[in-house]
Design a protein around this nucleic acid. Structure first.
Lengths: 204, 204
DNA sequence: AAAAGTACTGAATATATATACAGTATAATA
DNA sequence: TATTATACTGTATATATATTCAGTACTTTT
């Protein structure tokens, strides 16, 4: 997908808005009316540019034969990958780690998120997180004490409460009395925070 | 919404399929081609009937100016109500009980469901269900032992595990040692099963 | 028994629409 | 410096399309 110009973006937005409003795509004249063009050829050339760049498909000889290609423009839907919490190695978005995908809107968990992490074990049981739950993970380094974080400690990935004790010391606290707190000395141990939980999904 | 005839349903389906395939509505001629009509007026009269019955809207003098009215046909999206678990009274879909709605696809929790129930209390803590969780409820009477049910017992609504002991006796079991089992004698007590949990949603 | 609704064919037509052609002007790229 | 892409106006036109009118036939409702 090539780069889009701001004018072309406005035309693309115009098509989307028209579609949402009416249920069918605009004509060249409709686009002119919406964007203040005085010649249908203005719309035509923009459409041809958008087609060339792969943003839309134009059915030749067909009235209103415009369809938007990129899924992101078709409403607010998206496919989010489900990643297994493998004991070793980080939960990357590499294809071999993706078990499946779930279709859901970007704003489904109020904040934006990046992927679903499938939980193993019961170390967060008292926080209502059990085996096979899907945690909605937001990749971020903006972590506060009390956040549920996805942490990688020496190639081991875990889900725990985050608690910074001092400059050097971070506690990773489970929500289950059968598990011990993990004390991390940032000077000695390699801690990487993948992100934090912003929601949870369970199917039973 | 009036009754639809089978022929009109076929025309409506044809419009939806055409929309999914191309991204824009069909012309009268397109419908004829799809359904084997020999005159564009065949499509025209069906469209007028569908419009009269409220299934579609036709924009006059506009090519492909057909839009499907019923939300169910517009893709797979739907708004699901969030209902608070009020101590007394059943969680009905009456407007005053709907806190808000969540947009999500019908098949989001694999099985179909009807509404979200907002959980109060911690009686199902060990099943990973905590305060303010949203349970995806399927209204059904098809309940098996071990299902998490939404039960109404004398105007009190609770979420519990279902366990039928005998013809007469049903146990409603919490998942928290601080709570006691509820033993229901179907001869004496009025038990109504609203439905069962088929999933869970949490936003934090 | 009459009227209205459904379900078509077939032909005709006004107009809605895509699209080509002729220009002008500016910015970006080779 | 020439070329290509962007960003328009303005005119023209073939055709794609909605829509009306004239029929036929069958079914359902009043």
């Amino acid at each position: 997908m090539k780069e889009i110009t701001s004018k072309q973006q406005r035309v693309l937005d115009c098509i989307q808005i028209y579609l949402n409003k009416t249920g069918f795509p605009p004509t060249r004249a409709d686009i002119c009316r919406e964007l203040g063009f005085k010649s249908p050829n203005s719309a035509e050339t923009h459409l041809r540019a958008l087609e060339k760049k792969g943003f839309i498909t134009i059915e030749s000889g067909t009235s209103r034969g415009i369809s938007i290609n990129n899924q992101e423009y078709l409403g607010n839907k998206n496919e989010y990958p489900v990643i297994g919490l493998v004991a070793a190695g980080s939960p990357t978005l590499a294809e071999e780690n993706i078990e499946r995908t779930i279709e859901c809107s970007k704003s489904f968990f109020d904040s934006n998120f990046d992927y679903f992490l499938k939980v193993k074990g019961l170390s967060m049981k008292d926080a209502g997180i059990i085996e096979d739950d899907l945690i909605a993970v937001q990749k971020t380094s903006d972590i506060k004490n009390g956040d549920i974080v996805i942490a990688r400690l020496d190639d081991e990935v875990t889900v725990k409460f985050f608690n910074r004790k001092s400059q050097q010391i971070v506690e990773l606290k489970p929500a289950n009395k059968d598990f011990k707190d993990i004390i991390v000395d940032l000077e000695k141990d390699k801690l990487h925070i993948e992100g934090k939980s912003i929601g949870l999904l369970r199917k039973n």
